[in-house]
Design a binder for these strands. Structure first.
Lengths: 192, 192
DNA sequence: CGAGTTGTTGACCCTTGTCAAAGTATGTGG
DNA sequence: CCACATACTTTGACAAGGGTCAACAACTCG
């Protein structure tokens, strides 16, 4: 399936009929608060699987950030196969556990300072992006702000400050280059 | 198994050998950040099941908040049973999905104001506590602060402000009574 | 009763949000 | 190719919410 920029893939509270895998492009999941603010739960890039945040209904909406291709699999079909293929059942459970871990890492991000949040976000993107290249951000500053629980102005200012400190460089607003030691720091944490 | 106040039930990064159910008392799970701050991931009360936040190793530590009794079940035994009892497998997956949902609700809490966070916390405790009675909080202000990403001072001040506004009353620091309409508001949200 | 823990309050400051404006891309139609 | 419109991003000035530091009050437990 193809989805245009900003088009909805599924909506919160809809029956969760499919699991999804991004084959190209990028996807965001989000929830809207009573006061109208938007909280982005996660970004999914090429290769990532999403739609696991579900019991019977989705608990977040999903949208394509840019023109994206997405693979769809019927949950019901998977469930039937999972009865006999114990390995598949295990994989489904593991994938949900992985999402849980991601969400808990997200919580850890949200309790630190603006600079720490942006750095954490960039480290995560760097880890998931094609190795050692500059990061190409598919999402807007507003998306990043809504993911990190900051305002767009604070995100923008923090990017500028990180560049002034020489921690990143910003050839364009959507392209970020990190100094190597930052990546290294992240790797040691994951191995630790 | 009995655990004394503040004693460790399991540690982060340990092999995840058991699932747990609280039979009496209360449990907190937490992670420590590099800078030494503690983030509490969840509180578990009587009847709650925990230890699901795990692949092969726990991703948080668990401690008894007060003298507590906890039921332990070997994960390996459950996994073996789950191969044949498809319903059990389903339940395990569902329980993890429920934890995921809890974590995402936690994220939503963390992006709002101090008052909203404390209110959200109290609503959650009220919903889980024995119906319509005053809430008896097993955890300290420090625990609440570390759960909500605030300081102990801000939590204390917010409790005082809520009482001054007539939204709660505080017979003692660990006992909270909410006005009915607050509970009602919560119920309507859950019913959708 | 006294010592240690837990909770509350006050004064001040810093980070981040708010409001406003200007700068930069990107795209569209002539 | 240019003129214009629209989105997105950056920057500045100011205000407010929450953090920090410090003192004090209330509970617990020996």
């Amino acid at each position: 399936m193809r989805f245009a920029r900003n088009s909805e893939i599924y909506g919160e509270e809809e029956a969760a009929e499919h699991l999804y895998q991004v084959t190209s492009g990028a996807v965001r999941t989000y929830r809207i608060l009573e006061d109208g603010r938007r909280q982005i739960g996660a970004f999914y890039l090429s290769g990532d699987i999403f739609g696991f945040e579900a019991g019977d209904t989705y608990i977040a909406s999903a949208e394509a950030i840019c023109e994206s291709q997405v693979l769809m699999v019927r949950r019901s079909a998977l469930m039937i196969r999972a009865i006999h293929e114990k390995d598949l059942a295990r994989q489904l459970w593991n994938a949900t556990a992985l999402e849980l871990r991601r969400s808990q890492d997200h919580v850890m991000l949200l309790i630190s300072s603006a600079e720490q949040r942006v750095m954490g976000f960039l480290r995560d993107m760097a880890r998931r992006a094609p190795k050692n290249a500059a990061i190409e951000l598919p999402m807007s500053r507003q998306d990043i702000a809504d993911y990190l629980g900051l305002t767009i102005e604070t995100v923008s200012r923090t990017f500028t400050q990180l560049e002034q400190k020489g921690i990143i460089s910003l050839p364009t607003s959507r392209r970020v280059e990190l100094r190597d030691h930052i990546l290294f720091h992240d790797f040691t944490r994951n191995l630790g």
